[in-house]
């Protein structure tokens, strides 16, 4: 069983306050362990892609996947911090999201190399076995880091 890491969850939640776009989307930290990170995107009419169905726009779903996968890279390394911007991210949409439902994303980093971290993420509403989307990504560690004091 994965163990909840309060310090890591707290780190994610504080980081989010500085990541302006995630903050305006209202993304929240649900849980964090050294294995996986779960974030939540609260449903908002501002983020709808199709007014006929009320489904969230793929872009909002994609942002949640990117944010969660990016934090998942920190999970095994915490409390050490290495900045890794997204190199690439691919998302597959299994179904449209449901009007009025908050969206969750659970991401894990399944492989690290010296330069690259590889992630997988699943996006769902109330049942992880009925996913809205899947995402896979690669993140590349920065060689030299400018002052990233906001991450401490």
């Amino acid at each position: 069983m994965k163990e909840n890491n309060e310090a890591l969850a707290d780190f994610c939640q504080r980081g989010m306050a500085d990541i302006k776009h995630s903050e305006v989307l209202g993304i929240e930290t649900v849980s964090a362990s050294n294995e996986s990170i779960t974030l939540k995107l609260p449903y908002s009419l501002n983020l709808v892609g199709d007014m006929e169905t009320g489904a969230l726009h793929g872009g909002a779903i994609f942002t949640l996947a990117d944010q969660t996968s990016g934090f998942a890279v920190f999970s095994h390394l915490h409390p050490q911090i290495r900045i890794a911007p997204t190199l690439d991210l691919r998302i597959d949409h299994m179904r449209k999201s449901t009007k009025g439902m908050d969206l969750f994303c659970t991401a894990r980093c399944y492989r690290y190399t010296d330069n690259i971290a590889f992630t997988r993420a699943v996006l769902y509403e109330n049942d992880i076995d009925n996913p809205v989307a899947h995402a896979v990504g690669s993140f590349m560690f920065l060689e030299t880091v400018k002052d990233q004091g906001w991450l401490k």
Binding site: I19, D66, G70, P85
Partner: peptide, 14 residues
């Protein structure tokens, strides 16, 4: 990223 500052990758995707 507020330090660079950079556009959120998610927004660029969206």
């Amino acid at each position: 990223n507020p330090t660079l500052p950079a556009i959120h990758g998610g927004v660029l995707g969206g």
